[in-house]
Amino acid sequence: MLFSLRLQRWLSMVCLPLVGLGVWMALRIRGLEISNISAVRRRFRELSRSHSGPLLVCSNHLTMVDSALVIWAMGSFWHFFWRPSRLPWNVPEAEHLEHSRFLRALCYLAKCIPIRRSGSAEHRKAVTEQLQQLLGCGETVALFPEGKRSRSGRLETEDFGYGVGELATRVDGVLIVCIYVRGHHQEGCSTMPPAGDTIHAEVQVVEPETPHQGRRAARDISQQVIGVLAQMEERFFTDTRCLEAPETGHQARASLETA
């Protein structure tokens, strides 16, 4: 692993109590909670025990704090403290961090490698190589296969990148884990989830199969991952949302405002 990445990893672990607590408190102050957090964390603990190699965590993308929600769902502070390689590296859009030194520092300490989607092929290639190195060292990387927040509010199944497949084809022994995270009142793309919302998370391991190699295999695998996330989304709307439909703070506030 590159020295710069090793240093970033070390600093992130040193600052984990502070950064983790800060982010967790910000989410809690917003009134967010994850309804099935115990089950999701149990699933990730099982995966950590059964698979010692790298994890590629793929999630849907609707808000600017989805990475934090995914990490919160994946494990507790102690889970990541004892298994630092399971705290995922994230790849936020560099443009969102340009205006704030604080955000840049926070993202650095939260194991982020910013990418410029509109950047040159060389830049994107350099970021991919860094992620490849990290996975090669058994680290966990979290990606949004859609590449950006879905503007329609539903999973983008047509126009998505092939980064997930590219990494999966280049690194041996990568386990792809899809996690669908969504608040019950999250209708579309937004900066933050609605205040007081209850988040539901679902985890599913993907075992992609492809007869192809190279970029054809990357496309094939990425399509399979998006397919699994789309199925999870369907389940969210047909089963979960109908069954759980909690009376959240958001609803309560809306009722108060109406009154």
Binding site: G147, Y162, R219
Partner: peptide
């Protein structure tokens, strides 16, 4: 053209 679609064009 979306940069992600360049792969589709090459294929």
């Amino acid at each position: 053209v979306n940069s992600a679609r360049l792969v589709d064009i090459i294929l």
